[in-house]
Amino acid sequence: MAEIEIGIGKSGRRGYSLDEVAIVPSRRTRDADEVETSWQIDAYQFDIPVIAAPLDGVSSPATAIEMGRLGGAAAVHAEGLWCRYEDPTDVLFEIAELTAQRGSGQGSETERITRMREIYSSAVQPDLIAQRVSEIREAGATVCIAVTPASTESLLSHIVRAEPDLLVIHGTVTSAEHLTDGAHEPLDLKHLVRRLEVPVLVGGCASYQAALHLMRTGAAGVLVGVGPGVASTTGRVLGVGNPQATAIADARAARMRHLDETGVYVH
């Protein structure tokens, strides 16, 4: 892709969001019955190519069970409300009310932020992680548990003990090499992924090099995307990210290189 001069000594590439690209029909059509949407990651087969995001507003044990029934999966976050509260229903309704107040201009933004911090200050309960895994597994769905890189080491033993089918290490930006001032030991993704028996999906990333490095850790899948979408404030607040269509294309190119180098296909 041609580079564009931004200013003296600075250049960049034009990125494209999904809204800016379209799928062009080819010269042949195919009957709907002949279209195959199933896919497999490690030993787990899915009928539809969808894993619901590990967000409290998206995934719950009930969501994971229903997604499993439909042929997909949903990632329940080990640091989310379902692993902090025995029954977070009332708290979720309160968050919805806070969101509604924001939309209607009621109340103070500072008060809403303070209350959200209070809600999430409740400690993660390891027993609830095991309970959520058990609930989903007993319903016959594939169990997918997510955790942030910062909390992976502290929660890993509890997650592994619960025996999920898939583990998602998910952050706004996740890299294979994290630099630190030495105040704390950074997560060594390559060492971690290779010593776990459970398949690991890692992300997010938004560039060719970042995706390739994550694939080289031994991850079974890479989450692509930093900043795009209406649910994300990263792009708007921090100016960090990459238009999603370009990010997907770059990650695909990284996957092809990794496949050529290792013979391993990464999702």
Rank of each mutant, 00 (worst) to 15 (best):
I8L: 13
K10D: 02
K10I: 11
S11N: 12
S17L: 09
S17N: 14
D19I: 03
V21W: 11
I23L: 15
V24Q: 14
P25F: 10
P25K: 09
P25T: 14
S26L: 03
T29Q: 11
T29W: 04
T29E: 15
R30P: 00
A32G: 00
A32Y: 15
D33Q: 09
E34Q: 12
E34P: 03
V35P: 04
T37S: 14
T37L: 15
S38H: 05
W39L: 09
Q40A: 12
A43D: 09
A43Y: 03
A43C: 08
Y44R: 04
Q45M: 10
Q45V: 04
F46E: 07
D47E: 15
I48R: 03
I48M: 04
P49C: 01
P49R: 01
V50C: 13
I51R: 00
A52D: 08
A52W: 05
P54C: 13
L55P: 02
L55K: 05
G57A: 13
V58H: 03
V58C: 14
V58E: 09
S60P: 08
A62W: 00
A62G: 05
T63K: 13
T63I: 11
T63W: 02
T63D: 06
I65T: 03
I65N: 00
E66N: 07
M67T: 01
G68R: 08
R69H: 10
R69Y: 00
L70E: 08
A74F: 01
A74V: 06
A75H: 11
H77C: 11
E79A: 08
E79T: 11
E79P: 15
G80F: 09
W82L: 04
C83M: 05
R84V: 12
Y85A: 02
E86W: 01
D87Q: 00
P88S: 06
P88Q: 06
T89H: 07
D90H: 09
L92V: 13
F93H: 10
E94H: 09
E94F: 03
I95N: 02
I95R: 08
A96M: 00
A96G: 10
L98Y: 01
T99I: 10
T99F: 11
T99C: 02
Q101E: 14
